[in-house]
Design a protein around this nucleic acid. Sequence first.
DNA 1: GGAATCATGTGAT
DNA 2: ATCACATGATTCC
Length: 299
Amino acid sequence: MNVLATIPGLGSTGAPAFDVTPQGSDYETVRQVIEMITLDYRDQPSLDTIAEALGQSPSQLQKLFTRWAGLSPKAFLQAVTLDHAKRLLGQEALPLLETSYELGLSGPGRLHDLFVTHEAMSPGEWKAKGGGLTIRYGFHPSPFGTALVMATDRGLAGLAFADGGGERDAYEDMARRWPNASYVEDAEATEPYMRRVFDRSEWSAERPLQVVMIGTDFQVRVWRSLLKIPFGKAVTYSHVARDIGQPTASRAVGAAIGANPISFVVPCHRAVGKSGALTGYHWGLTRKRAILGWEAGTA
DNA sequence: GGAATCATGTGAT
DNA sequence: ATCACATGATTCC
């Protein structure tokens, strides 16, 4: 598996091969703040304490965080708390799931927030493990750290995250899923996806995002169900299990959600445990909190 | 409130 | 076959 040696832009020189926008570089700070206020929330670290630990002035940090999240650090913490997650689950989420289900999902799906037309691989194509597929990829700054975007000519196929220096790991993680595909670095081809995915003003029903889901039948069913969860809301793993008609498969659903290759677009971060606890996230629980909190502040 | 324990469906080896 | 899980419910402290 020495394919990695041939990949430009993944060198270990440390210099990122992309422009870092102000928004992109903010995330590293935000991530540390979130980590501190949630890791031991018992201690209830004050803004001053956090600012000191990060070597920044409290007011500057406050401003940066609020600009990023739309929420003060304190309000953010509240939004990512157990109680709030439970409230998200409570009333609206389930009915919405059911009504969406009635709309049917054959053909171009009219879905919530980010409008997506999705296409699943045939079983044959899945067995080929990406064989015959050309996947273009590129790294781009995003509000949640460096994003790795992968696309075929049929649409967006993968979206992964990497924190400082983790680009190579993110690439390996993704490439392992479709080992027989051929990979071409082409940030120019992936950049348009990037712009549309993270800019809500670009989300429109007339111009849905083209997405191709490469997975088993079961996984695709689970991922489709996730697409129906509205922005800023959350459901439990057992909700999803019920939605796909296998009410006892909540654990299997968890596994399938964990395998979702198109994070953020397929909102796997909106699935939480029945208790309201954020049970897990492939790209780190802190990022799940960040995305959920960001949605709470942006909704 | 936990900690321990069980039933459980999928996917990888 | 067997195992690891981003689960959930139950049953003990």
